[in-house]
C-alpha cells in the first residue's frame, strides 16, 4: 500500500452562477460558485481515502471531477502516472474501465426501466469488456453472487422498484465492481440505508477492495463511520482542504479549529458519554463569495489576528503525513 495510484493537483471547479436576465445585464462581472477551489491530495494503492465535510463543501464535485463526469476548471488529475484531464474522450475510455462511481441514493442511481441484469451488464457492454453474451451473463452472475444477491437468477430479472434499499445498493456496488475497477468513488454509499444493513454493505465494499485490490475515494459527512473505515482522511470546507492525514491524526488528534469543532459536534451513541458541543456558530457561508483570508475565519473560535482575515493559510505538513491549513500552525 505504498505507491500512489491517483494524484490530484490544485483541482478547481467553478460553476458559473446563473443570474436572471436583468441581473446579468446589470452585473458585468461573471459570478462563480467556487465548489472546489484548489485542492491537492493523493490516493495510494488499496487505500480507502475519506473526504469529509459539511454539506456544500465540494465533496461530490471533487469525486465527479476526478472521474471527469464533469470537466475540472483547472488542475491536474494524474492516474497511474498519466494526466487524464488532457485525454480525448476516446483515450478516456480505457481509463473508464478502471474507475467507477457508486452514488449516494440507491433510489435514483439505478435506471428504473432496466432489469438488474441489464444494469450490471451495462458497463461491460459499453466498454466492450466481454467477448460474448454468454461471458457477460456469467460475469453478471458471478458478481451478483459476490454482493450477496443469491441465487442470482432470482434477482437478475427484477426491476429496481422490486428491491429493498439495501438490495439496490448491492446492485449499484455490483455494477461498479463488475469491471474490476482499480479505483472507485463511493459518494455517501450508505447514508440512505438503515444502520442495521449499513455495516453489511460496508463489509462487502471492504472485502471487494481487498479482492480486487482497488482503492476508494470515500465521500461522507459521517465522521464516526469514516474513523472506522478510512486509512486517511481529508476535511473540506468551502472548496478547500483544511486538514489531512491518517485517520488517527485527523480524528483522534485534530489540529485545525474546524476539524476540532466538527468532531466535538458529533453525537455519541452512549448516554454516559460527553454531550455534543457547539463550538462554532452559524452555518457554512456561500461558496459564491467565500470569506477572505482563511475561509473559516467568520466562524473560527481561535482567530489569532488580522492575518486570518487577510491571508489564506497554506496546507502545510505539521508532522509526517499530517497537513493543516491554519495560521496557528503556519506562523511559528
Amino acid at each position: 500500500m505504498s505507491e500512489t495510484l491517483l494524484k490530484v493537483e490544485n483541482l478547481k471547479k467553478w460553476f458559473p452562477l446563473k443570474l436572471g436576465f436583468f441581473r446579468s445585464l446589470v452585473s458585468k462581472k461573471l459570478l462563480y460558485v467556487r465548489a472546489v477551489d484548489g485542492i491537492s491530495f493523493d490516493i495510494k494503492n488499496e487505500e480507502i481515502f475519506g473526504l469529509a465535510g459539511e454539506s456544500g463543501s465540494g465533496k461530490t464535485t471533487t469525486g465527479r471531477c476526478i472521474l471527469r463526469l464533469i470537466e475540472p476548471t483547472d488542475g491536474r488529475i494524474i492516474f497511474e502516472g498519466r494526466d487524464i484531464t488532457k485525454l480525448t474522450p476516446d483515450e478516456m475510455k480505457s481509463f473508464r474501465r478502471r474507475m467507477q462511481i457508486i452514488f449516494q441514493d440507491p433510489y435514483e442511481s439505478l435506471n428504473p426501466r432496466m432489469t438488474v441484469e441489464d444494469i450490471v451488464a451495462e458497463p461491460l457492454r459499453i466498454l466492450r469488456i466481454a467477448n460474448s453474451e454468454d461471458e457477460i451473463i456469467a460475469k453478471v452472475k458471478e458478481i451478483l453472487t459476490k454482493v450477496g444477491l443469491t441465487p442470482p437468477e432470482e434477482f437478475m430479472f427484477r426491476y429496481p422498484h422490486e428491491l429493498s434499499g439495501g438490495q439496490r445498493q448491492r446492485v449499484a456496488i455490483a455494477r461498479a465492481f463488475v469491471i474490476n475497477p482499480k479505483f472507485v468513488v463511493a459518494d455517501e454509499p450508505v447514508s440512505m440505508l438503515d444502520v442495521s444493513i449499513r455495516a453489511e454493505i460496508l463489509k462487502l465494499m471492504l472485502s471487494l477492495t481487498k479482492e480486487y485490490r482497488s482503492s476508494f475515494l470515500y465521500i461522507t459527512h459521517d465522521l464516526a463511520l469514516a474513523k472506522h473505515l478510512c486509512n486517511r482522511i481529508a476535511i473540506m470546507y468551502l472548496g478547500k482542504i483544511m486538514e489531512m492525514g491518517t485517520t488517527e491524526q485527523v480524528i483522534d488528534n485534530p489540529l485545525h479549529p474546524y476539524t476540532k469543532a466538527l468532531i466535538a459536534a458529533v453525537p455519541i451513541p452512549d448516554p454516559t458519554a460527553r454531550r455534543s458541543e457547539v463550538v462554532i456558530k452559524g452555518e457554512i457561508p456561500s461558496p459564491v463569495n467565500p470569506p477572505s483570508g482563511c475561509r473559516f475565519h467568520t466562524r473560527c473560535p481561535s482567530v489569532i489576528g488580522e492575518i486570518c482575515r487577510k491571508e489564506e493559510p497554506e496546507l502545510i505538513e505539521i508532522e509526517k503525513g499530517h497537513f493543516v491549513a491554519c495560521h496557528i500552525y503556519s506562523k511559528k
Binding site: V195, S196, R198, A199, E200, A224, K227
Partner: peptide, 16 residues
C-alpha cells in the same frame, strides 16, 4: 451497529 467516534474499534455488526 452504531459506530461511535469515541470508540477504538467498530465491528461492522449488521442484522441480516
Amino acid at each position: 451497529s452504531f459506530p461511535s467516534i469515541s470508540s477504538k474499534k467498530y465491528k461492522f455488526v449488521s442484522i441480516p
